[in-house]
């Protein structure tokens, strides 16, 4: 997702750069004002139609599949309470099964915090805010097993960057065994 976003942005930005360079190279020459105005008007009409006709349906389509309800979120979820405070995460369980819907119930005892979940390669996989007075429910399904890190993604004071916790994501059988051993 992130690399795709970066690539899309870079392509579009290079397009804008190319436009500016093309115009900059042609600025110092003389040309017919009316003719240029005419072609700019045509270009603008096309751009507007493109941005409205393609862009608006696209952005609607992207919101249609509700992003806060992830794919594969079926069946009885496991509820994990995640209480935050300056500067700690307190999870009701630190081991979770892969491929199972999880609902993180995010709360905070003091200021706003951000519950950011990083996978083993330290790629951000999901996040939501923890807000005073509210319980925010973050739905997620872990796709791979491994040691995940919870990191704070909302500035909360001097130890914000050190507000970390770990979640061990294991296969469902191991998870069930460990649960029954407790």
């Amino acid at each position: 997702m992130q690399q795709f976003a970066l690539l899309t942005s870079l392509i579009l930005i290079f397009g804008v750069i190319a436009g500016f360079l093309y115009v900059a190279i042609n600025t110092s020459q003389a040309g017919d004002k009316a003719e240029i105005q005419q072609s700019i008007n045509t270009l603008r009409t096309k751009t507007l139609w493109l941005m409205i006709g393609v862009g608006v349906p696209l952005t609607l389509a992207l919101a249609y599949r509700w992003p806060h309800a992830p794919e594969g979120f079926q069946g009885e979820p496991i509820t994990v309470s995640a209480e935050s405070g300056q500067w700690y995460w307190n999870l009701s369980q630190f081991e979770l099964p892969v491929g199972t819907p999880i609902v993180f119930e995010l709360t905070t005892v003091d200021v706003n915090h951000g519950f950011g979940v990083y996978d083993e390669e330290f790629e951000l996989v999901t996040q939501a805010q923890a807000m005073p007075g509210y319980t925010n429910k973050l739905n997620y399904v872990f796709k791979k097993p491994g040691l995940y890190t919870v990191a704070c993604l909302e500035y909360c004071g001097v130890a914000h960057h050190a507000m970390l916790a770990e979640i061990d994501v294991v296969d469902p059988v191991t998870y069930a065994n460990n649960q029954s051993n407790e």
Binding site: V23, T27, G31
Partner: peptide, 25 residues
Amino acid sequence: YVSGIPVIAITTLALFGYLFKSGAR
């Protein structure tokens, strides 16, 4: 998304039209 449209389709393209072969130094 919509608020980005005027920046690109109106301001930027207008600037292009004013600059292009204007003889500006």
